[in-house]
């Protein structure tokens, strides 16, 4: 089988570029720990409240340390449960200071949902039986739309809330 000289040059360049991409991605993933979320932590989808993090009183934003927060969310068609505020009203907006490190932990009680803070790298599939989690540093200020980006039924596009990252 014969390769033209120029085809050898092209394939060397092309494969070289692919290898370079993979090295960059691999360095980020394995050395800096920027893997996409994958923890394989399981939970009973019919009884998520049994897990400490998803008891009704532990839902929503919790400050755990200076500039460290945890956000626990229970997703269900077509709603994100962030718990209730002091007056007993459902929370549908959270505020996080810029630069804070936030651990998002999300589970679903029914079907598959998405959990995407639009315009950020917080983007996870939420599947029955697994805890989706991702720790990020919120570095951009502004108001973000947190929405379900995996089809979950006829109300899918009504499943959202807002996250404000303030200065």
């Amino acid at each position: 089988m014969h390769f033209h000289k120029f085809e050898k040059i092209w394939l060397t360049f092309g494969i070289g570029a692919l290898v370079l991409f993979l090295v960059i991605l691999g360095y980020g993933a394995f050395y800096l720990g920027t893997h996409p979320q994958s923890h394989g932590v399981t939970i009973d989808p019919q009884n998520v409240e049994a897990h400490e993090a998803f008891k009704p009183e532990n839902l929503g934003l919790t400050k755990v340390d200076e500039d460290r927060y945890i956000v626990n969310v229970v997703a269900s068609a077509f709603h994100y449960d962030f718990g209730v505020d002091a007056d007993g009203n459902a929370i549908n907006h959270i505020e996080i200071p810029k630069g804070a490190t936030v651990l998002f932990q999300v589970v679903t009680k029914d079907v598959i949902h998405g959990f995407n803070i639009a315009g950020t790298n917080v983007n996870m599939m939420v599947e029955p039986g697994y805890i989706s989690s991702m720790e990020v540093e919120m570095n951009q200020a502004g108001e973000f739309t947190l929405l379900c980006n995996e089809y979950c039924g006829i109300g899918h596009h009504m499943m959202y809330t807002t996250v404000e990252v303030y200065q």
Partner: peptide, 11 residues
């Protein structure tokens, strides 16, 4: 030569 330049641009 034209091919090499074309794939180069593509790359």
């Amino acid at each position: 030569k034209g091919t090499l330049l074309s794939v180069g641009a593509l790359g």
